[in-house]
Simulated assay, not measured.
Amino acid sequence: MFTGIITGLGRLVDRVDHGGDMRFLIETGNLPMDKPDVGESIAVNGVCLTAQTWEKNAFWADVSAETLRLTTLDDLQLEQPVNLERALAASDRLGGHLVSGHVDGIAHIRACRDEVRSRQFELEAPADLARYIARKGSVTLDGVSLTVNDVSANTFTVNIVPHTQEMTTISGWDVGQRINLEVDVVARYLERLLSARDDARQGQ
């Protein structure tokens, strides 16, 4: 599990195509990496990847064809910055919200505008995921835990404060860009519980 609080900016320094899936070499940049372990989970733009081997300040990770299809990782270019977060330890503060690192789908940036010192983005979510996004609820975009400002049909808005812009890749977001989207896991469990309750009532 993760929190959606980005603790480092890295970059993609190599990618090897294996005929459908890929292997990425991610430089960890300023991510705190004391005693990194082989096999540990690291969220890269919100996608949970397994660090298989380490090379100085970088790690290799396999990216399956399914992950390439469901996320924006296949869009990454060499030297492009990425948001990084190590998996949550039991003693860590939960500063954002519970994030699984399992991307649900891809959102598209429809508009952006400056709002005093913040920057507001309007995004469109896939229709089957929009129902999990609520005003003042939590959402994860490219691994960043954010609060939803407003919702209308399949679109929603988020405001990005200066600190978040500085510490993440959001400073480079633009209209038309594809963004990894993970909805709040609590919303998914709530839907499942309500669905099971309704099924039980119908079976009575």
Rank of each mutant, 00 (worst) to 15 (best):
A43Q: 07
T164N: 00
R135V: 12
Y189D: 02
P32A: 14
R201G: 00
G96F: 01
T157I: 08
F2I: 07
W173I: 06
L194R: 11
H102S: 00
V158G: 07
I106F: 08
S41N: 13
P32V: 14
R119I: 11
N83A: 09
R15G: 03
R15P: 01
E191H: 04
K56G: 09
S152L: 12
V44G: 09
A65E: 15
W60A: 07
S145W: 05
V13A: 01
R15E: 10
T3W: 07
G29Y: 08
I5M: 11
L193Q: 08
L94V: 14
L25A: 03
L68Y: 04
I160V: 15
T168Y: 01
D199C: 06
L129C: 05
D92V: 03
Q120F: 01
A65T: 15
Q202D: 14
T140M: 09
R93T: 04
V144Y: 02
V63T: 13
G105P: 05
A90G: 05
E85D: 07
D199F: 11
M167E: 15
V175W: 09
I133Q: 01
I179S: 00
D62C: 12
T7V: 07
G19K: 10
R86S: 12
D114Y: 02
D37K: 15
C112S: 14
E55H: 13
I179R: 05
S195W: 08
V38A: 14
I133R: 02
G4T: 08
D104L: 03
D184W: 07
N30S: 10
V99P: 01
L31E: 07
R188P: 01
N154L: 11
Q165R: 11
D62H: 15
V116I: 07
A111W: 04
L78H: 09
R23V: 11
R86P: 13
R113L: 05
D14W: 05
T28W: 06
P162K: 01
A130M: 01
L129Q: 06
E191S: 02
V161E: 13
G105W: 08
R23D: 06
G29D: 10
V185F: 09
R11P: 04
L76M: 11
E85R: 10
P81V: 10
R11L: 03
N83R: 10
T3R: 11
D114E: 14
D150W: 13
L190C: 00
L49P: 03
E124L: 05
L70M: 13
A61R: 10
R131C: 12
P162F: 00
V63K: 11
E182K: 04
M167L: 14
N159V: 10
T147I: 08
L190E: 01
Q202A: 12
E191F: 05
A87S: 15
V151K: 01
I5C: 02
A58I: 09
S138D: 11
T53P: 05
A111S: 12
A107T: 14
P36F: 01
A43P: 03
R119V: 12
